[in-house]
Amino acid sequence: MKRSEEQEQISKLQHDWKQLDELGDRSPASVLQIKELIALQKEKQKRAFYKEVSIFFVTAILLLSVFMMSIVQAPVVFLTVQVGAIVFAPIILYVLVKRKKDEGKVLQ
């Protein structure tokens, strides 16, 4: 019985060694392939950057046009929103800062 267990363990070890040898046999990527991958990644980053910048500009233009229209069309509404922002912004900031400080504390 002991002999068969030893044989089984030896065969498992040999199988594992073969797997390790197969892992080592893989050749690393060539310098040319690595450069191509880097170039592709840079191109993807460039496209993502331009997409993000264009979304930013469209959003900024939209917000500025809404801002200008609200000043021209309904100055009372604009002033009400501004006063509300002046009143509620510090309250919201206080709540957010307090919540951030509470997250860092350990429960007692």
Results as ranks from 00 to 15, higher is better:
L13E: 10
K2E: 07
Q9A: 12
E36L: 08
V97N: 06
E8T: 04
I86A: 10
D16A: 06
L93K: 09
P75T: 00
V31S: 14
K98D: 04
I86E: 05
L37M: 08
I71G: 02
L107A: 08
A60K: 07
L40R: 15
K12F: 03
K2N: 11
I92P: 00
I92N: 07
Y94W: 09
I38R: 04
P75Y: 03
L79S: 15
Y94R: 10
L40M: 15
L63A: 15
V77I: 13
L40A: 15
R3K: 14
F88R: 08
Q73L: 13
S65Q: 14
E36N: 15
P28Q: 11
V81R: 02
F57G: 00
S65Y: 04
K12G: 01
V87H: 01
L63G: 12
E103P: 00
F88C: 13
I86M: 10
P75M: 01
V87C: 01
Q14V: 04
F67W: 05
S27V: 15
L23G: 06
V87G: 00
V66D: 02
Q9T: 06
F49H: 09
S27I: 13
E43P: 01
K46Y: 07
Q82L: 13
E22T: 01
I34G: 08
V106F: 01
E103G: 00
P28C: 04
A48F: 07
F67S: 05
A29H: 13
S4Q: 11
V106I: 09
L93Q: 09
I71H: 06
S27T: 14
S54F: 05
I91Y: 11
V87W: 02
L107H: 06
S27H: 14
S27N: 15
A48V: 03
K2I: 08
D25C: 03
R99M: 07
G24Y: 04
R3M: 09
V81N: 02
V66A: 11
Q45S: 09
I92Y: 02
G84T: 03
L20N: 03
L64N: 10
K35P: 00
K12R: 10
L63E: 10
F88E: 08
L96K: 11
F88Q: 12
E6M: 07
K98G: 09
Q19S: 09
Q41V: 01
D21M: 04
K42F: 11
V66M: 07
V72W: 15
V81D: 02
A29P: 00
L23T: 03
F88K: 05
L63W: 08
S54H: 12
H15R: 06
T59N: 13
G24R: 09
F88N: 04
R3D: 07
K101C: 01
L20M: 06
K18R: 08
V83E: 06
D25S: 08
D102K: 13
V106W: 01
L93E: 08
E36Q: 12
Q73T: 09
I34Q: 14
Q7D: 05
E36V: 10
G24T: 03
V106E: 05
E6C: 03
Q45P: 00
Q73W: 04
V77C: 13
I10C: 02
Q82H: 03
Q41N: 03
V95A: 11
A60T: 05
W17F: 10
M69S: 15
L96E: 11
Y50V: 09
S11V: 02
Q14D: 05
E8K: 15
V31A: 15
A85F: 14
M69P: 01
V53I: 14
D16Y: 14
